Simulated scan of single mutants.
Amino acid sequence: MKFGPIPTLQAKGSILAHSIVCSGRRLRKGVMLEDAHIEQLSASGITEVTVAQLQENDVHEDQAAAELAKALVPDVRAAGLECTAAFTGRVNLVATGPGIVDLQADRLIALNSIDPMISFATVPNYQQMRKGGLVGTVKIISYAVDAEKLRSACALGSAAIKILPPQLKTASLVVSQNANRNDEKGISAIKTRLDALGITLEKVIATEHEIDPMAKALSSLKSELLLILTSSATSDSNDTAPAAVRAAGGQVERFGIPVDPGNLLFLGRIQSRPVIGFPGCVRSPALNGADWVLSQIACGVSLNENSFAQMAIGGLLKEIPTRPQPRRPKK
């Protein structure tokens, strides 16, 4: 692509690089100059314009953006994404329903390394999305790009991003209570989170904060996902709520995650059903580690030690003003 000023009379078929007001009308940048434009510019006394001139191996920005988006999402239905029409070298990828983003980071980094003029920006991997949420945007920064470089980008980006929809449809919640706490706020916050994932909260059981009644409640539930909210924070893998999971015939796979707020979450199973023991910060609607774990479990992601370790990068989330032990004590 050639870029620079040329005589107006030689600009037919070129792309106008900068918007110009002439004869009281605005010619926007990016327009392909035709005879009528040349006459309009000349009549206004504009003898020179800055343009982009495509060469034999160049692909126009809109065509290039559309081709790259098609490569990234070859099957929109399977990917849970839709692509907007190309405009000014941009195509947006939008979620068609709830779920989490699943992307091939190494391939997308390589794609963005081919040419600074070929870019694809995304939300973080595993970010929870709602219907209509912007997941990524293809942007061809120049007015055209080299066809060979575009082909390389398309190959690297082939089917490299999608939405994982929720796999679990039902959940039940065990809430341990004491005389000083009514947990309607916590129940409401959890229901809102489940609603966003299309999961029905089938049953809520309130129990004393003791192993046996909590274990009995857990054993009675039939939902695909079991949740626990305790009146007293879980402080150890042998504390009351994890012990109740074991007493109900389950196992505790993880206590503690490197996400703050959300450190005191635990994850387990009763038979094949996942059990999430929520930290107290789940009572707030603010983003916390419970959101990350809940959304990934709901969407069928298997979490292991490496999964949790990766959460540490970016895992320092916004402080919740109402949390009982803020990171920095008040002076």
Rank of each mutant, 00 (worst) to 15 (best):
E253M: 14
V252L: 14
M1K: 01
F266N: 09
E253L: 15
P124S: 06
V275M: 10
R254T: 03
A243Q: 15
D260Y: 11
R28E: 03
C83P: 00
A247S: 14
V138K: 05
S235V: 15
R327V: 11
I276A: 00
T200A: 09
S172V: 09
N180W: 15
R77A: 11
K203R: 13
I320N: 10
T170N: 03
E305K: 13
P166Y: 12
C22R: 04
A78V: 02
L221T: 06
I187M: 06
S237T: 11
E34Y: 00
L227R: 04
S152P: 04
G268L: 11
V174G: 00
G262W: 00
L93F: 15
L316Q: 15
A171R: 01
G289K: 03
V138M: 09
I100W: 11
D35G: 01
K222R: 05
A36P: 00
D106H: 13
T50K: 14
E210P: 00
R323I: 09
V293D: 03
Q55E: 14
T322V: 09
S231P: 03
H209P: 01
L264C: 09
H18E: 09
S14I: 12
A17K: 05
Q104V: 15
L108D: 10
K185I: 10
I20P: 00
M32F: 04
G80I: 14
S19P: 06
Q251N: 02
A215L: 01
I100E: 07
V175E: 03
R327S: 13
A217L: 07
T8E: 13
I38G: 02
T207D: 00
S219L: 11
L72S: 01
P7R: 13
D183K: 09
M1S: 02
V145S: 11
S19Y: 05
V94L: 13
A147L: 10
L81C: 04
D195S: 08
D236P: 05
L81R: 07
L81M: 07
L229T: 04
G249L: 08
F87S: 01
A69S: 04
I190E: 01
L33E: 05
A244V: 04
K318G: 02
E184S: 06
A189P: 00
I140D: 01
C22N: 10
Q167L: 13
F255T: 10
L150T: 02
V245H: 13
L81S: 03
P324Y: 12
P74H: 07
P274C: 03
G280D: 07
N288R: 02
A286R: 11
R327E: 10
A52V: 10
G133V: 01
R130V: 13
H37Y: 08
K162Y: 08
A312M: 01
G133Q: 11
I276D: 01
G4W: 01
E208Y: 08
A247F: 12
V174W: 10
T192N: 06
G13R: 03
S176I: 06
Q104T: 14
D291A: 06
G268H: 14
P98I: 14
V275A: 02
P166V: 09
I270D: 08
Q53E: 13
G250I: 02
E48P: 04
L229G: 01
A95K: 05
H37A: 05
D236S: 15
A244Y: 02
G249D: 06
V123S: 05
S19A: 12
I187D: 00
Q167I: 12
R283L: 05
L226K: 05
I211Q: 12
R28G: 00
E253V: 13
K2Y: 13
K12N: 03
T137S: 12
E305T: 07
